[in-house]
């Protein structure tokens, strides 16, 4: 299948991308790795008139330790996240989770920023950055602003990044030696999660248990109060409203959330 016609433009900096977005307005879409956007265009679920390619902007692709955080350029590819020594040392959850995204070919193209802004509730990385409590640096016509993880994911495939804005950087706190784990439940290895759970340093996030990735706050509270993994996990599905699809109904998803949370907590405590 083939996308509807569009104009292809290449941005050479974040600011250039913002300019182009301003110029073309709602007609335009940013293109990073294209691993979510191009399938959408091929199935003709969207037909932007202009694509602004940011995948080759050199200063959007980097990983560097910056104080208590690691700063990651939005156009950093999954592969580079997986292989980053800094991340493996400072935030081991993130490269581990990036390794679950799609398959090797997809990780050779897809980017951290693309995955986060695409904001599929079933995706891996949104869940991971939520558990990590990342901060997002967003650039728009009036300059840069910072968004907390808790504010970033706003709805089904919706984030705090406006149509005239670009995500430029993701800042993840260094978790160092804190316990962490990721439990992804799939039928086939390169599928999106039916349910997934990321746990790090007493924080727990769930994928595909609602319209956005969600923090399992009841579980986190129980943990903070000294509950065992099994006890804390019992409330993992509290306050969630997962979809029903051909893989799982609501009750089963809730059950999976509890089982996976318990397993993640056991591993993280490990």
């Amino acid at each position: 299948m083939i996308p509807a016609p569009f104009r292809y433009l290449r941005a050479d900096s974040a600011a250039h991308a913002v300019d182009l977005l301003g110029e073309h307005g709602d007609e335009a879409k940013l293109l990073a790795g294209g691993q979510s956007l191009l399938p959408v265009l091929k199935l003709r679920l969207a037909d932007p008139a202009v694509l602004i390619d940011i995948s080759r902007v050199p200063d959007l692709s980097y990983i560097r330790v910056d104080g208590d955080e690691v700063a990651i350029g939005a156009a950093t590819r999954h592969r580079d996240v997986v292989e980053s020594e800094e991340l493996r040392r400072e935030v081991p959850l993130l490269p581990h989770v990036a390794g679950y995204v799609g398959d090797r070919q997809i990780r050779h193209r897809g980017t951290l920023g693309g995955s986060l802004v695409h904001a599929d509730p079933a995706a891996d990385l949104p869940c991971a950055v939520l558990a990590l409590g990342a901060t997002f640096v967003v650039e728009g016509p009036s300059g840069q602003r910072r968004v907390d993880a808790g504010e970033f994911f706003q709805g089904y495939f919706q984030t705090a990044v406006g149509a005239d804005e670009i995500l430029v950087e993701v800042r993840v706190p260094r978790t160092g030696g804190a316990g962490w784990a990721y439990e992804k439940f799939v039928r086939r290895s390169n599928d999106w999660a039916i349910v997934a759970v990321a746990a790090v340093d007493g924080r727990v996030a769930l994928a595909n248990m609602g319209e956005t990735p969600l923090r399992a706050t009841a579980t986190e509270r129980a943990l903070a109060g000294g509950a065992s993994p099994a006890e804390a996990a019992a409330s993992a599905a509290e306050g969630t409203s997962p979809i029903e699809d051909m893989h799982a109904d609501r009750a089963y998803r809730a059950h999976l959330a509890r089982v996976l949370t318990e397993r993640a907590l056991v591993t993280a405590a490990g």
Binding site: R187, R188, S189, N190, M246
Partner: peptide, 16 residues
């Protein structure tokens, strides 16, 4: 149809 693409029809891969 709910299974009209390879994203939704569970064609198995080498890992399964």
């Amino acid at each position: 149809p709910e299974t009209s693409t390879f994203a939704s029809y569970p064609f198995l891969s080498a890992t399964e």
